[in-house]
């Protein structure tokens, strides 16, 4: 019945949504921001502990659909140890992939499981929610961001 949904709900995505990595408050975080999707009430807070320009540790918490949760889980796993400029490049590459289905550069790794989301325009915001929160956390703006 749902064969055409396999691009959206890949096994990796379901796994991460069921057992999210890096989930919970990060003690000693020196950056944090909440992302909200006013459409559905979903929210995710991203915590970062920066060591200079390097993301020493990163976690998230919040509630959301399988796509939103898995996206945050895979994102945090991918970003640990990355520098601020590297994170910015990943943001751009991920954003472009979510919009077009095409991955630029070869740095996306596991993040490329979300390429299929571009076929589901109403779910793009779900995948991007944690990334917008990340961008706000890295920029030092501690106010909430929304997908609208």
């Amino acid at each position: 019945m749902f064969d055409d949904l396999d691009d959206l709900y890949q096994q990796v995505i379901l796994d991460h949504s069921r057992s999210p990595r890096n989930f919970g408050v990060l003690p000693g975080a020196n950056g944090r921001a909440q992302g909200r999707n006013p459409l559905c009430g979903d929210n995710v807070t991203v915590f970062v502990k920066m060591d200079g320009d390097r993301i020493d540790d990163i976690r998230f918490e919040g509630t959301g659909c399988a796509i939103a949760k898995a996206s945050a889980s895979v994102m945090t796993a991918a970003l640990k140890g990355k520098t601020r400029p590297e994170a910015r490049v990943l943001f751009d590459h991920f954003h472009e992939m979510i919009k077009t289905g095409q991955a630029r550069g070869e740095d996306l790794g596991k993040l490329s499981v979300f390429a299929g989301v571009h076929k589901f325009p109403s779910r793009v915001k779900c995948a991007m929610l944690c990334w917008h929160a990340l961008a706000a956390a890295l920029s030092g703006r501690n106010e909430p961001v929304t997908t609208e």
Binding site: F2, L5, L8, C65, I67
Partner: peptide, 8 residues
Amino acid sequence: HAHDVVTM
């Protein structure tokens, strides 16, 4: 999640 239910 409700959004996954509705998409499916």
